[in-house]
Amino acid sequence: MAYKNVSYQSVAIKYGIIVGIVHIVYFLLMWALGLQEIVELSFFSAVFLIVGIIVAISRFKKIRDGKIQYFQGLGIGATTGAVSSIILAIFLMIFVSTVGQEYLYSLQTSYLFPESLSKLSLFLTTIVYGTIPGLFIAFIAMQWFKRPDHTMPERI
């Protein structure tokens, strides 16, 4: 099968892009509904990252006929988290620089971020808040996926 040559990086990048786009859509939906001031709602987007990493690991394992190395799974999680958070961070820089300066102000007044939060620190924080949890999510998911008999259920 030609798919056996698929690298874990390519799968992780693909799902990282998908998760990044979902993050942006969620952010724009919150903005359209006037909910971006509630900073705590942005942490709900972690669900998108969790689902994206689990699906990416499952997909890679299926492509590789049920074989996945432990560090490949960790790499998928970290890469998916990094790619999605870089996409979101770039979008946030464009958003804050053009139409959403008040969003940065709302973050500065939130108890979750320092008052001195700048665009650069928002950019870096967004990347860190996606990459490190991605690694932890993959670590937890790999406890299930590392065994050959553990797979995601087939669609009904």
Rank of each mutant, 00 (worst) to 15 (best):
G20N: 10
R147P: 01
F44G: 14
V128K: 08
P148D: 14
V96H: 08
I140W: 04
I21Q: 06
T98Y: 04
M30Q: 12
Q72W: 06
T79Q: 00
G134I: 03
P148V: 11
I13V: 15
G130C: 07
F60N: 04
S97G: 15
F60E: 07
V19L: 09
V6T: 15
I50M: 08
G20V: 08
L107C: 03
K146F: 04
K14Q: 11
L88W: 05
N5W: 09
E40L: 10
T109H: 00
L74C: 11
R155H: 06
I86S: 09
I21H: 03
I21W: 05
L107D: 02
P148C: 02
S84A: 14
L120Q: 12
F123W: 14
G73W: 06
A78R: 02
R64M: 09
I156D: 02
F139R: 08
L74Y: 11
M142L: 12
A138C: 09
G52T: 01
Y111K: 03
N5M: 06
Y103N: 00
Y8A: 12
L29S: 14
N5C: 02
L120S: 13
F136P: 00
L35R: 11
D149N: 14
Y26W: 15
V128A: 14
P133Y: 02
R147W: 06
F139N: 09
R147G: 04
S85I: 10
L88M: 15
L33F: 11
A32H: 04
L135R: 06
S84T: 09
F44D: 14
R59P: 01
G81R: 01
F113R: 02
I127R: 02
L28V: 08
F113Y: 13
